[in-house]
Design a binder for these strands. Structure first.
Lengths: 205, 205
DNA sequence: CGCGACGTTGATTTGCCTCAACGATTGTGG
DNA sequence: CCACAATCGTTGAGGCAAATCAACGTCGCG
């Protein structure tokens, strides 16, 4: 019985990490041996809705690959409100990289918006992995290069579009995602109030 | 006289690339042999004020390391105005990475705000260099990781601060930079009009 | 069932924009 | 070296997009 459980767990870990391996192999080569080396250094985690990967004051403990689900990164503003600065969904990495790299306390929260599963790569493990599998540096170079350009594009839209235009642009870009998060979170992310979003939506069904 | 000029030029290339070597060595090891390999694959370029590294419609020809000077990246909006989405100064890399990676036409401009000098790393050369000097992947991984977090922070300020607060925050963060660019460019970058900036400044000397 | 979280709607306010006219400074050609 | 234009910054009047504040409806859940 004990053996069986162990076997199931082992299988489940390998299986649950398939999306990550697939994502890595979109950008760099990774042999099966190298993949199992990787698997030894990461772990899989189920995160309940509203649970935190990170809370302000803590050091960001891992670099998180979202296997499935949805997270929001936010921080508390000067007067008590929460400001969402980004969402993360399936096949995205999320972390407070300033806190993670320097192992210093963060000022942010990373919270599950729905029940989710992630792969955790801790700082120590990641450092070792970068030595053993240098192609991971290339992989993350590409990941961050794209994340950087995505944020620049986002800034462009924030500067040029009205609130209403931003909402419809986002809606067109991620039509299914809009259903997944409460409207007040979407409003915060897009940079306006929930009341405003409600009025925009009232205009067109 | 001609010889002398040539000699000066050769010396000047090695010398002018010192800031780049120094920047790389802040993050990854690079032997002298490796450095000269690098030097063979890049070139140095003086850029006059108002000259372009990239214009909309062109493919972004290089990844540019700014040795000294100042650049702005902008694009034309639907209503004929220019929207600045970022500045680049000494020791920053700048490029339209979407255009650069895919070698497809850009929709952006990269223009010198003042007389500047850059080091150009062309796509082909960069690809070869990444093979020869794999630590450059790590170097750029770090560069992009930091650039990404910087943009996330910038988004946070755009979402949370009023126009006046954004100006003073930027002013405090880069006190000398504010002097270097015309106010209308700063206004565009910070997301308000030149008139508004003028009125903000009028309030406090 | 009743409470708290979320969304809606309307009245009012405000931060910033638009438009227009006017200085100041720079650069360029005669 | 001056005249003149072009560029950049300033100031004010009026307008609009979105925020704020408040009241109310609705749904899911302990």
């Amino acid at each position: 019985m004990k053996n069986k459980t162990t076997t199931i767990k082992a299988v489940s870990k390998a299986e649950s990490c398939v999306p990550l391996l697939h994502h890595i192999r979109r950008y760099v080569p990774l042999s099966d041996d190298e993949a199992s080396l990787l698997l030894d250094s990461i772990h899989f985690k189920i995160v309940n809705s509203k649970a935190f990967l990170l809370q302000a004051g803590q050091v960001c403990g891992g670099n998180y690959f979202i296997v499935n689900g949805c997270f929001r990164m936010y921080l508390n503003t000067d007067y008590g409100t929460e400001q969402i600065i980004q969402f993360g969904i399936d096949n995205w990495w999320i972390a407070d990289y300033t806190s993670f790299e320097q192992q210093r306390p963060s000022d942010r929260f990373i919270q599950a918006v729905e029940k989710s599963s992630v792969i955790v790569m801790e700082k120590k493990e990641q450092d070792v992995l970068f030595q053993k599998l240098p192609q991971l540096e290339r992989y993350f170079r590409i990941v961050f290069q794209r994340a950087y350009t995505a944020q620049l594009n986002r800034i462009h839209f924030m500067l040029n579009l009205s609130g209403e235009e931003r909402y419809y642009h986002f809606h067109n870009s991620f039509p299914d995602f809009v259903q997944r998060v409460p409207q007040y979170m979407l409003a915060s992310y897009l940079g306006f109030t929930p009341e405003f979003l409600s009025k925009v939506r009232a205009k067109r069904g």
